[in-house]
Design a protein around this nucleic acid. Structure first.
Length: 423
DNA sequence: TCTGGGGTCCTAGGACCC
DNA sequence: TCTGGGGTCCTAGGACCC
């Protein structure tokens, strides 16, 4: 059976989402900033043309922001999340076999097609633009790795109509001959460095290496990449099990913190947020890991990085229990006299909440009571906004809170921010 | 002065067992 | 306590992704 992989993704997704509500910024350079307005995490084409790279610290473009050359946005995850839902909804209409890969990417598998796939790709691009308002590109090829290549080529070639198909051997070979090996899906910093030393420049150079040699020097992951470039699929559609294996929440603070109570308050909030995520996927956690760290770029200050894991008495998703265990961990690794920059909580050893709750120390009654309280709390927080109900220890101090000086309205998710139309 | 956050997969190496 | 190979299980950390 003929199969073709498609990778569809939103062009400059966050920037395009912001621009949808601000048509007046149609040709302006836009920078989307990370949490805490720390650095650039998404860019419009115009700012790429200015040479602003991914990860550029905000202070380096502050002057251009001040004089209006660059328009900054703090990350607005509520709006991006809703645009994600709409985009995936639309893309999923083009084939029954699809998989969400990231916030702005979707795999589409086409089986037994007998129509012009390039035309179909262009149709998909136009329809998504019409229905969602986000510009997308699609690349199609016999494997996921090659579809990634096709997608990048679709973006690069302004005449492609946003769609590129690599179907036949000769067109794949021609494309790979001009494709930098560093841009392949699966080549990061470490592999790029080694490939450069070997004189491997293009994806075709890499594909022409002997398979056994690749396996020996680049392990199984490199070998899979090699096979995929030859058109042999190593990655399939990943349908279900959307449940995460780990759940983490961590943030840098709005400023460096030295007092225990402030860090404890931030940590309690991260732990509570992890517990809420855990209940949303109907899991319980067996281990809580707590991390603290100082500011790694501040060479003038003493550095301290540590983390600790604690086993929960019994696997649970109870906010109180998870927050308490996290705080016990923090007390063990806390050291006075440092300027802390970040803390975080990681829940591990996750399992299905309904599969065999142990009885151990708690009676069933306690478990049921905890579940009832949590359900009520989640319900209230869903209806009236995050943190309407919370633990006392989560506090009301704002010392640790993030900067977000350029936040756009939550156009899609907050009633007060809806756009009013005058007709 | 100012540099993100949340994930997965794989491997090496230690602990332990026979 | 040392001798030795081979297996499993677990964890830390590297590499990569978006």
């Amino acid at each position: 059976m003929k199969k073709l992989w498609g990778l569809a993704d939103g062009n400059n997704f966050y920037a395009s989402a912001e621009r949808l509500f601000r048509p007046d910024l149609a040709s302006k350079p836009l920078a989307i900033l990370s949490n805490n307005d720390g650095c650039v995490i998404a860019r419009s084409n115009e700012i790429k043309d200015l040479g602003v790279k991914m990860g550029t610290p905000e202070f380096e473009i502050r002057e251009q922001i001040r004089n209006g050359v660059i328009v900054p946005f703090s990350s607005n995850y509520e709006t991006y999340g809703e645009m994600h839902n709409r985009m995936m909804n639309t893309l999923s209409r083009f084939t029954p076999d699809w998989e969400i890969y990231s916030v702005d990417e979707c795999w589409l598998l086409f089986k037994d097609f007998d129509y012009d796939m390039h035309a179909y790709g262009k149709y998909l691009v136009n329809e998504t633009w019409r229905l969602v308002g986000i510009p997308v590109s699609i690349g199609m090829a016999p494997t996921k790795t090659l579809a990634k290549v096709a997608n990048k080529l679709a973006k690069k070639d302004k005449t492609s109509g946003g769609s590129r198909v690599l179907l036949y051997d000769h067109e794949i070979t021609i494309a790979l001959a001009e494709f930098p090996v560093n841009d392949l899906w699966g080549v990061g910093y470490a592999k790029a460095k080694r490939l450069a030393l070997m004189g491997v420049k293009t994806a075709l150079d890499f594909r022409q290496l002997p398979g056994e040699w690749v396996k020996k020097h680049f392990t199984i992951t490199g070998f899979r990449m090699w096979r995929e470039l030859h058109g042999h699929p190593c990655y399939e559609l990943e349908h279900e099990s959307f449940n995460k294996e780990n759940i983490a929440t961590g943030r840098t603070f709005g400023k460096l913190l030295t007092r225990y109570n402030e860090v404890e308050e931030a940590l309690a909030n991260h732990a509570a947020s992890c517990a809420a995520k855990l209940r949303r996927q109907k899991s319980v956690a067996g281990f809580v890991n707590v991390q603290v760290e100082t500011h790694r770029f501040r060479e003038d200050l003493p550095q301290y990085v540590n983390n600790i894991s604690a086993k929960l008495l019994q696997p649970t998703s109870d906010t109180g229990s998870i927050v308490n265990h996290a705080i016990q961990g923090l007390k063990k690794i806390w050291r006075e006299g440092y300027h802390y920059n970040r803390c975080g909580v990681l829940l591990m050893d996750l399992r299905d909440a309904n599969a065999g709750q142990q009885i151990a120390i708690f009676s069933d009654h306690d478990v049921q009571k905890s579940q009832a309280v949590m359900e009520r709390m989640d319900d209230l927080n869903r209806r009236f906004g995050k943190n309407t109900v919370k633990m006392a220890i989560q506090g009301y101090g704002k010392e640790w809170h993030l900067k977000a000086n350029h936040l756009s309205p939550r156009y899609l998710t907050r009633v007060a921010d809806f756009i009013n139309l005058k007709i």
